[in-house]
Design a protein around this nucleic acid. Structure first.
Lengths: 206, 206
DNA sequence: GCTCGAATTGACCGGCCGGCCAGTTAATGC
DNA sequence: GCATTAACTGGCCGGCCGGTCAATTCGAGC
């Protein structure tokens, strides 16, 4: 098989990290036990302590790895160079929505860290948000977005809507008349994109 | 003091329920212990089992009580009779936002139940959402809201945005340029209300 | 005033928890 | 080939976990 001859500390480390991540994400920090993680990674409990020191340190390491993967992927999707602002924003929303849809473990990771009051995740994607907000601001200057809203709040609005859509799926999936992922995304985009159109042609109210 | 003469099972029950709720909401089901709850309610651990049977049953009872309080309050705020649809919706968003702001324990309760995959909360407020969606539909018929979006998705959009704003506060509070509660609510309402205006006067795109 | 059931207590159970430690095994550098 | 270091193991520790149980204390109905 693909078994390493005898020892491979790096592989061992990553096996532990993977098993730990999926268990922590599934059951939460308190309810996941070192014994389960050991069993899940085919390794002794003592060895986990050897590599990571403590349960907390292991959780931190698992979070950090997941965050890095997340930030890397999101950064890659932001690179899109020369689309006009509206299409860029629409694509950003769709990309983020689909990313979460394909990575439920990231959604749960965020949920756990929010309950913990963890701040490392906020620092991690602050740069991404800054970049997105900057693009919105450019759109405002170009006159394609209304300029009476904080660009960061524009990004925040779609990020929290998409995130919570998946986080609270078990909750609102039971609401009468609610549609599937694509139907909601479509309706959300309609409201969101229209809501950002510049002031002027319609009655000013806000 | 206000100590009951000697025994008062109802009061005891509610004391246990209150202590359990705040501990569960703070630390989560797995990390809150019956011993802590006993200490927090000034009661023996055995007595909790006498009244509730098990830790799971206690958690269920605590959730149910909180849900009832939540649904009752939200129902009361929906009663507003005769406002025009736009003002009604705007008031609904503001009320919900402020309610969450004043009840962080409800926000955490939702977060825990979402991670558990709990479905009882969705059933609980399904009727509220149905009522809200019905009002939106009436606004669509009256021509004050665009009619090419699912009314339930309109309600869902503002509910999940408000909920996640508070749920993920520790996360996005670190984002550069982000404002406080009122600033975000104001910007969100601008985008949301404008996004719902009827089609026609502007370029149709979606 | 007695009785019967519910409220309440404290001691106790087996089991799992995270962590530690002494010992063994394998790779690495000389 | 031999010493040194790191990877890795199994067993053990004290402590906390949820739950049980027999024993008490009280209150309500007769």
């Amino acid at each position: 098989m693909n078994e390493p001859a005898t020892r491979d500390p790096d592989l061992t480390r990553s096996r532990i990290l993977d098993a730990a991540f999926s268990l922590f994400v599934e059951k939460g920090f308190a309810d996941a036990s070192m014994r389960e993680i050991a069993a899940g990674s085919g390794v002794t409990k003592s060895l986990i302590h050897h590599h990571f020191g403590s349960k907390e340190a292991l959780w931190d390491a698992a979070k950090e790895q997941a965050f890095e993967l997340y930030a890397e992927r999101q950064r890659a999707e932001l690179e899109d160079p020369s689309l006009p602002p509206r299409e860029l924003l629409r694509a950003g929303v769709e990309n983020y929505f689909r990313f979460l849809s394909e990575h439920p473990e990231i959604v749960r990771l965020f949920a756990w860290t929010h309950l913990e009051g963890d701040t490392s995740c906020g620092q991690m994607d602050a740069e991404l948000v800054r970049l997105g907000a900057e693009r919105v601001r450019q759109g405002q200057e170009a006159g394609v977005f209304r300029d009476d809203v904080n660009p960061t709040h524009v990004v925040t609005t779609f990020v929290i809507a998409c995130t919570h859509w998946f986080e609270a799926r078990s909750h609102h999936s039971q609401w009468p008349g609610i549609g599937d992922d694509e139907a909601f995304l479509s309706d959300f985009l309609k409201i969101f994109m229209r809501g950002l159109e510049p002031t002027g042609s319609r009655d000013p109210e806000d």
